[in-house]
Design a protein around this nucleic acid. Structure first.
Lengths: 211, 211
DNA sequence: AGATTGAACGATTTGTTGATTATTCAGAAA
DNA sequence: TTTCTGAATAATCAACAAATCGTTCAATCT
């Protein structure tokens, strides 16, 4: 059996255990047993337990990413609609994943605590899609260019942060979350001011800024 | 000594202990000792330890609230500027408070865990100010009316959630946080679309919505 | 009477011990 | 040689005991 095939077998066994008993309650010995090998042998394929979890999360997330990339260029939908499709898709995916498998939250929390760069990598991927979406949409005159697009993508992520972290949902149901995301998107897309130029060059602020 | 004066003495003693040793490491016996009374006597003035913390937070927050109300009607500044003043003030207050007294975070976390309605009360207060600000600004033609103002206030809070919870700051410095808040506000105020009417009536979405 | 105390009580926290676990690596197997 | 094993190790976790703490209330003081 090829090295990659063994890796996949390990990933499958771990995925099954993790979602059934949780990351913490799954031991390396158990995963090794499921694969008919010794615990020590796992370490020829993964540096450690966390890396198995990361591999699971990565393949899962990459599937999601390609879906998002598709939504970002769906014909027949304009820029704002595509942006909305993406963010709604992300919210729904997270919500349903958690509903189907509540133990996924534990794994997500462990990974983003012990491997913060993983969460950053996910956000960066999404930003890349957002930038492309905005570029494309701007050419069609749907978005107004207003500053660096990478920065705007960051701001969109910042404003929609709540919908990416289940810890912040405080028992809200999916319909309520969707209504809220809907409202935030409306705010972002339409803006509060009718005349953009009027307030475009706002003075920084009246108070001093900390060094 | 009047009942209120004793309450204040207790609050002062507790405030001192909480910010010096933390909420968890402060005992009722110590606070009572500082006030030259027995632990049991504290309960004639407060229902429990958490209520002392809540009283401290309340007076502190009410000072902040009046400041916010002032910023919301400062002459010579338009609607968006006032909105910005408010949200920047809130961010700075939280940041500096935490810098000066890192143990304040513990207290805030305990309160919002054990007394979620307190956090809701703070948000509701702020929303009331935001609604008044928008009402006033709309009369001056600075904001476009677009739906229920209470809802818009909720969405503003949702989009700026990150700046209200230090747990979400991940070591960011105040200047970085300010830059980010700045960007989010720009997004909210100006919006991504130049022509509001063009996308105002967006179809809900293409996928089904969960019941 | 009303105000205050401090011992008593149950809940929570802390400290400790033993078991479990992730990880390593010397050596066996192929 | 290369692949794998499983006992050894060090770190982490779980469970239990002891101590501490928030809270109560019968008794004491004013």
């Amino acid at each position: 059996m090829s090295k990659d095939a063994i890796r996949d077998k390990i990933i499958d066994a771990a995925k099954c255990r993790f979602s059934h008993f949780g990351y913490g309650k799954t031991t390396m010995a158990e995963v090794a047993g499921d694969c008919d090998m010794s615990p020590g042998n796992l370490y020829r394929f993964f540096p450690g337990k966390l890396d198995i979890a990361e591999a699971i999360a990565t393949t899962d997330y990459e599937k999601h990413l390609t879906h998002m990339r598709k939504l970002a260029v769906t014909p027949g939908r304009n820029g704002p609609e595509r942006l909305r499709d993406m963010l709604f898709e992300e919210l729904r995916r997270t919500y349903h994943k958690l509903e189907k498998d509540p133990r996924a939250l534990e794994m997500a929390q462990v990974i983003s605590r012990e491997r913060p760069e993983f969460a950053n990598w996910m956000l960066a991927n999404e930003r890349k899609i957002l930038v492309e979406l905005m570029d494309e949409s701007e050419r069609r005159g749907e978005f107004v260019p207003s500053g660096d697009r990478e920065t705007i993508a960051e701001m969109i992520q910042s404003a929609t942060m709540k919908f990416r972290y289940p810890q912040l949902w405080s028992k809200l149901t999916l319909p309520k979350l969707e209504r809220e995301l809907d409202g935030v998107l409306k705010l972002i897309i339409e803006g509060l001011c009718p005349l953009r130029s009027q307030f475009a060059a706002m003075p920084q602020q009246q108070h001093e800024t900390a060094a």
